[in-house]
């Protein structure tokens, strides 16, 4: 186990190193730099040059990356060029939002996908299965932002159940906090449950042909118990993989949802920083996203182990 963790940690450092260097160079290669953002539209070329010199943007990329790495090694992620906010503060304040959005959206997606996938597999080819299959197909082709607008129209404007936008932290109360996450999470979940449902359905169909399912049936257990106790776990390996990929994609990729619902998450921070070439923030975000990916990978691996005892003993033996 210790070896496993060390290996993961080494990989993490490698990934962070490579990803941070790559983003640094990529941001530097973008046309124009932060000076044009900072100076605004009412500046002279001379002033822009002055800002550039002040921020050290006239230095070579490698030198700048070196500086950044050195500061990072001392635990200093720097400050935003734009707002002067410490990068760590900026990320730290947005991390809970991103994590909550990720978790809730995937919980909603699973709440939809698992019963639907299980039932469709159990009644594969039935009317219900076909209707759900084409509903899923339809939903996945609706852009997230359209779904979001429809949900806002229904639940915020028509029914007035939930706020249209905004974010309340946990400190304002659990319900106040959850209310602000329902629509954004649903907007993501209503798209992302589809691939989850499909993989679960097809894996489940395969599992249901297994002998041990016949065995369970021969025991006289009711269908729901066979589906949930016997078939679900062995059918959920691909599901977990897809789930991991989706969460990974959402760490920095929930941008549209964060923008529409005005959630102060990492995605919005990152994209605004990219537009502004605020590379301190970009680097900080990328760092967290890379760490996030590795952590999710680790969690997924751990989940496999939890779900499949065969891996567990193999790991214990080695």
């Amino acid at each position: 186990m210790a070896k496993f963790v060390t290996l993961k940690l080494l990989r993490l450092i490698g990934v962070v190193f490579a990803v941070s260097a790559l983003t640094f160079v990529m941001v530097a290669m973008l046309p124009a730099d932060i000076a044009y953002d900072i100076a605004g539209q009412d500046a002279t070329p001379a002033q822009i040059e002055a800002i550039r010199a002040e921020l050290g943007l006239d230095q070579n990329v490698l030198v700048r990356y070196g500086h950044w790495l050195m500061s990072l090694a001392q635990g200093d992620m720097g400050r935003s060029f734009r707002s002067d906010e410490p990068v760590l503060d900026a990320i730290w304040s947005r991390l809970p939002v991103t994590i909550e959005l990720l978790v809730l959206s995937q919980v909603f997606a699973l709440l939809l996908a698992i019963p639907a996938g299980v039932y469709c597999a159990y009644r594969a080819g039935s009317r219900f299965d076909r209707v759900l299959g084409s509903t899923g197909f339809g939903m996945i082709s609706v852009p997230t932002f359209v779904l979001a607008i429809v949900l806002i129209y229904l639940f915020a404007l028509r029914l007035e159940w939930l706020p249209a936008t905004g974010y309340e932290p946990f400190s304002e109360g659990v319900w106040a906090n959850l209310r602000t996450f329902v629509l954004p999470s649903l907007s993501i979940a209503l798209v992302e449950w589809v691939p989850l449902m499909r993989t679960l359905r097809s894996d489940m169909i395969a599992t249901l042909k297994e002998d041990f399912i016949s065995m369970a049936k021969a025991k006289g257990l009711p269908a729901w118990r066979i589906l949930t106790r016997h078939a679900l776990r062995p059918s959920s390996f691909t599901l977990i993989t897809i789930l991991g990929l989706q969460i990974g994609g959402l760490i920095g990729g929930a941008l549209i949802i964060e923008t529409i619902f005005a959630l102060p998450g990492i995605g919005r921070l990152l994209i605004n920083a990219i537009y502004a070439r605020d590379y301190m923030i970009v680097q900080g975000c990328i760092l967290f996203i890379a760490v996030g990916y590795v952590v999710i990978n680790f969690v997924v691996d751990m989940l496999y182990v939890a779900l499949d005892p065969r891996i567990r003993t193999a790991g214990a033996g080695g």
Partner: peptide, 16 residues
Amino acid sequence: AMVFQDPMTSLNPVMT
């Protein structure tokens, strides 16, 4: 009750 042919596949791999 029934006993199946292949005990490699007739027992649920993820249950004790």
